[in-house]
Design a protein around this nucleic acid. Structure first.
Lengths: 336, 336
DNA sequence: TTGAAAGCGCTAACAG
DNA sequence: CTGTTAGCGCTTTCAA
């Protein structure tokens, strides 16, 4: 371990002078400056951030709790966020709650112990209010992502409700008469209390239409694909919307296996594989999300801020999954 | 900020007693123990890890530098690693080098400043030896992942060479006579000096065969799909192996667009989308990787350890990309 | 069984 | 322009 004392003694100055020189603070003679920098370089000195943090009582680090490590979407946003943090001299600690309030609390404890400046988390239940309070007591800002569960917290969500409404409207416009929404079944959360709620958008779009519909609540993890298959077989929809990438993949698997190429399909969480497959999808804006996260880190406000990020519906092949049958060429895109 | 002093004064004991009580170290009377714990709970006290680290001069944190945030493979291993760390009371800081030595050095500096116990990184060039040395000087262990560039470092790699040899052998066995390997073109690294080297395995398998072959070096980022298309058109292979997920997707896009369903195809980095697409792929073992990473964190050795993780070749549909034409049923798998 | 004091590495305030 | 001193929150002697 190389400390500033080592640098100071090699440069024959006091530690505080060395510190000031290295951080270019205050007046330092050219000669001292050079000596200090030479000494630091020779020794390979890098300031101990731990000590700096203890002194300044502030870390340039945020905590990020991912609820579902199976969901590619979470990872896809990570590198943009990291890049933004880097540009602002910050770093990020990542933790995983595995959709489970107990692990979530553990994550909180560890991030609070690290005295991160802000904790971003996707709530897995509504009963971890206590640890959120502890975080606040310890001077940590807490922001909930993607699910608006705790009223008094700053919140960033994607506009899944509107996304789902648009998807539904599109399927109706394409002539679908029997729509199935594969929405999320939260393990520790009452779906009806979660905002945004895709089902709400779904029902809004269906309002006034004579189309039949059905909503299946499907778990994020440890799900049974047979349940999904049974629902499709029983209801025999002509249009399906899935709320996540994973449910989307399961649905696609079923549809292609059964060669159900007449069923129209839209899924949430666009990615490059869906693009390749020419599957229509709802695309979140990583750029806007990253911006909003940056705002949350920087801005302080007294009242909880509720931020809603609009989404794109990316239409491909008229929402038919015809890639499984034959390639086609047309692609268009509806900007929201 | 709630400190141990707050807890101590509320429990009417000294800070050192509170500290011992909370950590269950030494002799503490039942009464004191209860008082301290009650005070801590009431205040929502969580020990400041920053201060603990400064005192103990050791962090329970590792650093992880991801070289290519476009590569899903890196993310897919993250949650397993995180889970393992959690079970051992550790955490992880993630950084991104973007396949670029300058960013890589920045990542190193930041992780060294945080005094992580170990830095895992995928080298982007061979000329960052200096900062690696600085890390070591500061008591940090450095492990290179997936590319064996620095001789004197502990190393964990996937056995891409063997994986590529097997893939090649399989394609030859299936009757391919013109094989194209889309290998990686490293921006800041001489491909010939990178181990493992897929091309080596490729050539070994071809040795003695009369099949024609060609190797294309394709960049990981900022690549031009047209180059790939041109190579395929010019050489007109009947079998293709791609070294990464991203190159695989580009190749698949081209092949399906041109309806080249007679070309056999195997790609590195298996995932659920490839499984759905019934594309044959080489699958790395996340479980073994996580184990080895754990070993690296725990074990100290004097000589550099070089660890090679075997891979699976997962065969689907005889390496034909027939999902683009019609679903088929047979799947088998060759364990290595 | 508990408390007082020192110190981890760094920096801010103050003195020179 | 530079050095001395104190202290961030915690733990660890060493005494009591």
């Amino acid at each position: 371990m190389i400390t500033i004392k080592d640098v100071a003694s090699r440069a024959k100055v006091s530690p505080s002078t060395a510190s000031r020189a290295l951080r270019r603070i205050g007046y330092i003679s050219k000669e001292t400056h050079d000596n200090v920098f030479r000494a630091a370089a020779e020794l390979g000195y890098i300031a101990n951030a731990t000590a700096q943090q203890l002194k300044s009582n502030s870390t340039r680090t945020i905590g990020f709790i991912i609820s579902d490590s199976n969901n590619e979407y979470y990872f896809s946003i990570l590198s943009d966020i990291q890049k933004m943090l880097n540009e602002n001299g910050m770093s990020m600690i990542i933790a995983f709650s595995s959709e489970n309030p107990v692990d979530e609390e553990t994550c909180f404890r560890s991030l609070i112990a690290s005295r991160v400046s802000t904790i971003f988390f996707t709530p897995t239940s509504s009963r971890n209010g206590a640890i959120v309070e502890v975080a606040k007591k310890n001077g940590i800002k807490v922001v909930q992502l993607f699910r608006d569960i705790y009223e008094d917290l700053d919140t960033i969500i994607n506009d899944d409700e509107s996304g789902c409404r648009q998807a539904t409207e599109k399927l109706l416009a394409l002539g679908c008469r029997r729509l199935l929404l594969v929405d999320v079944d939260y393990l520790h959360l009452d779906a009806a209390s979660v905002r945004p709620d895709r089902s709400t958008g779904f029902l809004q779009a269906l309002n006034g239409s004579s189309a039949r519909y059905r909503i299946l609540r499907f778990p994020l993890i440890d799900y049974d694909p047979a349940v999904l298959a049974a629902a499709i077989e029983e209801f025999s929809p002509d249009g399906i919307i899935t709320a996540t990438n994973v449910a989307g993949l399961e649905t696609l698997s079923y549809l292609t296996e059964k060669n159900c190429t007449h069923i129209r399909f839209i899924t949430f969480d666009d990615n490059r594989w869906l693009e390749f497959l020419r599957v229509s999808a709802i695309r979140q804006s990583t750029r806007v999300l990253t911006e909003k996260i940056k705002d949350e880190i920087c801005i302080q406000s007294d009242v909880p801020r509720k931020i809603v990020i609009p989404q794109d519906l990316v239409l491909r092949g008229n929402c038919l999954i015809d890639r499984a049958v034959t390639p086609s060429e047309d692609t268009d895109r509806a900007d929201v």
